[in-house]
């Protein structure tokens, strides 16, 4: 009887250990696309236009300036349009993410669950990807998305500060870039679907997405389209990644 108990315990412990272990094939896929999308060797400045479409409502247009320094885990986002949003901004300094509210001159701490400007995208699409630090990952086979064959990798959060606790990434086999992400709640309800519509090569083997679509699966007809223009890789002044700079833009 005792041996059965220990065998069961061993089995359960082994199963738990297995569940916590990353699938090496999934890790390779993620490391591959993160090495293409993380731009550690240089700074990136770009202009984002976000168009949010909702059923039976006029389209909403937002414009943002984005400054990225992936090597230091920094980004600054500044809302430049429309006037009602102008002066708002985000600053990521490592693990800290601040939202600046110009009307009250307050910096408030936010986490990765924050929807940018009440659209359908969250802040972690803008900066450096660190998925393996936040998720346990598992290879789930292959699927066809549009006309491309993709590897499917499932992400299960191991830390609380993630945009969505369960995600399924569809990574194009031909170039190793992600083209679709399904984002689920902890109870596995599909909340949002992201489509990486198009990428631009900014250096050898380095890419930035230039068209992105976020579909809200809970609200019929609601989606956000993002276009990225004026991508520059020149060095950004250090002071851009400070609270003072955000405050200054709102004046």
């Amino acid at each position: 009887m005792r041996s059965v108990f220990f065998a069961t315990l061993l089995l359960l412990t082994g199963a738990a250990a297995f569940a916590q272990t990353n699938d090496p094939r999934a890790v390779r896929i993620i490391e591959n696309f993160e090495s293409k999308l993380n731009l550690d060797a240089f700074d990136v400045t770009s202009d984002f236009t976000l168009v949010q479409k909702k059923a039976a409502e006029a389209d909403r247009v937002l414009r943002l300036n984005i400054y990225r320094r992936d090597a230091a885990g920094l980004f600054t986002i500044i809302f430049t349009y429309p006037d009602s949003e102008k002066g708002k901004g985000y600053l990521r300094q490592g693990d800290d993410l601040y939202l600046y509210l110009p009307t009250t001159r307050e910096f408030v701490f936010r986490n990765r669950k924050d929807d940018i400007g009440s659209t359908d995208v969250r802040t972690d699409i803008f900066g450096r990807l660190t998925n393996l630090e936040k998720f346990n990952v598992r290879f789930e086979g292959k699927a066809t998305v549009s006309k491309w064959e993709c590897d499917v990798v499932r992400f299960d959060a191991k830390v609380p500060d993630v945009s969505f606790p369960i995600q399924k990434w569809y990574v194009r086999v031909s170039d190793g870039l992600p083209i679709k992400v399904e984002n689920f709640s902890a109870s596995e309800a599909l909340l949002r679907t992201f489509y990486y519509v198009d990428f631009k090569q900014v250096a050898a083997g380095k890419y930035i997405f230039t068209r992105f679509l976020a579909v809200n699966n809970l609200e019929e007809g609601q989606r956000t389209l993002i276009t990225v223009d004026n991508v520059r890789t020149t060095r950004i002044e250090d002071y851009i990644f400070t609270k003072a700079y955000l405050e200054r833009q709102s004046r």
Binding site: S146, I179, Y195, V197, R211, N216, N217, G221
Partner: peptide
């Protein structure tokens, strides 16, 4: 692939 919109999300011209 189209979030229920009926469009091809990867059609950059349409986008």
């Amino acid at each position: 692939d189209a979030g229920g919109s009926g469009d091809d999300p990867y059609d950059t011209g349409q986008f």
